[in-house]
Each structure stands twice: as C-alpha cells, then as structure tokens.
Write a protein that binds this DNA or RNA. Sequence first.
DNA 1: GCAGGCCGTATCGCTGTGCGATATGGATGT
DNA 2: ACATCCATATCGCACAGCGATACGGCCTGC
Lengths: 268, 268
Amino acid sequence: MNDITRPVLPPVPIAPPPDDPLFVDAIARGFQVLSAFHGASGPLSLGEIAARSGLGKSAVQRIVHTLRHQGYLRRDPRDRGYLPGLRLLDHALDYQRLDPQIARVLPVLMELRRETGERVDFSLRDDLRLVYALRFQSKRGFYSASLIGTSVPLYCTAGGLAVLSRLPRPEAEALLARSSLVPYSQRTLTDPQAIMARVDQARTDGFAIAQEEIVAGEIALGVPVLDEGGQPIGAIHVAGSLSEWDAGSFARSFAPLAMTAAGGLGGG
Amino acid sequence: MNDITRPVLPPVPIAPPPDDPLFVDAIARGFQVLSAFHGASGPLSLGEIAARSGLGKSAVQRIVHTLRHQGYLRRDPRDRGYLPGLRLLDHALDYQRLDPQIARVLPVLMELRRETGERVDFSLRDDLRLVYALRFQSKRGFYSASLIGTSVPLYCTAGGLAVLSRLPRPEAEALLARSSLVPYSQRTLTDPQAIMARVDQARTDGFAIAQEEIVAGEIALGVPVLDEGGQPIGAIHVAGSLSEWDAGSFARSFAPLAMTAAGGLGGG
DNA sequence: GCAGGCCGTATCGCTGTGCGATATGGATGT
DNA sequence: ACATCCATATCGCACAGCGATACGGCCTGC
C-alpha cells in the first residue's frame, strides 16, 4: 500500500459527530460510507467500509453500488478496493465558489501572498477545528502544500489562537474544555491555562505566532477574520520556514501586513 | 446576490448523469440535493433546490434537514437560503490523499513548478471533461487560481487534446461525437475534423498548446499522463500569460520540461 | 491438492422510514 | 390589506432499503 509515501498527518479532531439517532436516516448513510475514508490510508474493501462506518454489510453493498454509479466512489485501479471518486471535487468547488466569506477573502489573500512572498492560507472555523479553505503556496512548497480541506485543532495553531482570541473569554475557555488537548509535537501546549495565556497575548497583539506545533520547521502567523457581526469565522495565516526566520523577525515582517489584510475586509 | 463578484465560468460539461432509474435511490437523493448547487450562483432556497434537483418539496425538506445537521449544508449567514457546507472539503481531501495517481504526480508537479516558474496543474479525466485536481499558482495568480475541482472540456484545452492524442484514434473520434462542441471563446474550434487535426499534431509532438480557448490572455501547454497500462488518465499543464509568451517560445521553453516530468512517472 | 478466509455479487421477503399531501405562521412586497 | 414566497411541522401509507443468506472467484497456508 502507499501508506508510507505520504506524511501521516496527525489525527484530526473531526467535526462533532451528530449522534442524534433522529438523523441517522438513509441520506446520512451515504455520507457515513464516504466518511469511512477519513481515517483510511489506502483503498477500503466492502468489509472495511462496513466495519468503519458501523453499517451492515448489505447496506454498504447497496450504498457503495449507488455511489460508484454516481462517481463518488470508484475501484482502485489495481483492484484492491474502493476509493473516493472525482465527483466529490465538484461539490468542494461549489463550496468554494458560493461561500461569501471565501469570495471576500480571496482577493485580499492573493494580495497578501504577493506582498509577503510566503505561503498564505485562509482557514474557516468548524467548531473545534480550522479547515483550510484557500491556500497559496510559496516557491518551495511542502509536500501537503496544496491539499485543501486539511484541518487542524484550534488550541495549538496560530490561526486557532487568533480565532480564540476574538471569542468572549469564557467561551474560549469552554471551547478548550471541550477539546481533547493532544500534543501534536513536543512544543504543543496542553495546559488550558498556558493556552489561555497565549490567547490573551494574541488578543492584545491582534495576531498569534506558532512554531512547529504541527509541522516541524514551520513558523506560522495567524490573524482572525471576523464576519459582519464581529464573530471570528476563521483566520488568515502566513507560514514560513524556521530556517529563514525567527519569531521576532517573522512577526515584525508580516504581522502588520496580515492584520491590514484582515482589517481590510470590513468585518472589524 | 454576489453573482457579479466572481467570474462566471463557462457552463461545465458535467459528468454523465446516470439516469438509470435503478439508481435513483435514497442515497442518490442526498447528492441530488447537493448537485443542485452546481449551476447556482448564490444561496438556494428549499423551493429552488426542489426545482433544480427534480425532487419533491417534502423530500428536499427532510434531506436538507439531515444534510445541515451533518455539516454538508448550512444557512447563508445573511439568512437568504442554503449553501454547501464545510464538511464537503473533508471528502475532497480524502480524494486527494488517497488517489494513487495524485500521489504519483504531486512531487513531479512541484518540481515542474520550480523549474518553470509558471502555474502548473494536474487534471484528471472524467469521461468528457478534465477536472483540476492539483494546482500550483505562479506569482501572479488569476482570480480563480486556487479552485480545485474546476472542470473543462477535453476538446478545447491543451490538457484535453493531450489526453485525446493518447487514445486510439477511433475512440477519440467517438468521444468527440458524444461531446457537445460549444465554443467557449472566439478561438474555440468546434469542427470535429479540425479538432482531430490538433489531436494528431499533439500525438506526434507529445504535447498540445491552447491559446485563450477558455480564459482570455492565457496560453497553456498540456502533456498526457498515462497509467501503468498506457491509458491516458489526465494531463499536466503549464499555463502562462500571452503578454509574456507566444506559442513558439512557450513550447520551446516548457514542452521538454513538461514531457520529461510526465515521462518520469513510469507510465510511459 | 484442499480447506478456510475474504472478496464482490446476487436474490428475496419483511419492516421501518422517508415521501406526498397538507396546514401554519412569519417575511416580504405591492 | 392581500398575495406570495419562505421555513417548519405533522401524519399515514407505500415502497425502498436493509438483514439474512447463498454462491463463485481469488488468495494464503498447510
């Protein structure tokens, strides 16, 4: 299998699974099957899908059959099981096309990319996580450099801290309490109080800095993006390499640019 | 509405809708609702979704309810209807993560981006169209520069012609016959024989060139990407601006690099 | 060789669920 | 004030989708 060829991202705190038994209807089952691939590292067989999705084998059989016909699932070229299908990208495109926030941020982000010369991202908050929605690489992109949809936790990323800093403090604390504070690297803080200290710092600074909290050798700067009502809906990131920058110079170089970019959105 | 703020892409030749009545089951209905957004240019109301998806209003009501709860659909922030939800990006990520072809092409494409300095893409064939699966922008990205999932027809794009050139000639002709040859710009060829001449040219050259066939001011070079069996599964593109290049210099500069990149994949 | 898995596929009733029909109240516009 | 569209809710019946089961092909191990 090709497990080894790709860097295994840390397990992502996936969105809140709506366990409400009311909503486990047939429509949801189709997506349960697709969601079976979230933790996968290669093609899945019918049996594996059934096990991972918690559905019966017969149900999976029928659902997979339909999904294949629709292009949402397909067989592995080497006939080793099933893989997500191309049609999924159509829906991702619709998301990007139609999201007003993305429309608002896209031009600003492109300008920021031009000004900084570094990788810039826009990520959107989904409860306890941030989902990367737009990305412009730098010249030397890392491996996973183009993968939209990657998600990271709020509590240990520059963008996440930036988002937390614009929530009411008790709400941020409650959010941390709901999070499972897993250390993603040696430098990840897992003590809620220490995290809140960084959040407070970010609140006064207007931005947050994170070094190697998810990816080794990477330094990132995050500024919150607010909606019309002043609620933080996501963050703009600037990411660089620690071989070229230290925290001080990175912040001095890019924090004003990033904050100006985010401020120019009209949300605050 | 925000119709105007984004460039309206030409209507995309979407994948073959499997009209097989056998497969219009409940699972498919969930995706029918999501697919209602493919042609949309803003939020959709329940009624609009019902009309576009061909489903009854009650069905749409229930399905939307479920999809909202699962994060695949959400209300427009300004309460003007429904929009695709963030969870869709999770599945798009799974597609990119798990597709062996993408894993194969990604490093090669990054290297090509470094060598050329221009925008490079990898697109995958889905019947009559190419779907952009990976994209690395140049310094000056265009507006839609980061939107994965965009699709373009085979018959009038550099990558599409490259793919056609590696199909058996009768198969390529049959494919053209099935396509609705819409002119996307003044320079789009719609005569099957003229198109086949370009395909033949691409077959001998090993690459194809297209100028402003989809986007004004853009020149693109496409080389086919083959699977282990020698079948064309997609294409690698290099795209530049006509203000900086003409067809001859563009081909001389990048065709060898692109062909070497595609050739280094092991497929042929 | 042959047994034992696990694979994907096919068939077939029963049951439970999702659909159609319908009603209501709130916005919006004229 | 009416008319129109919206989202939401309820309810009973038909039928679609699930569970159970069976079958043939392909490996792996002995």
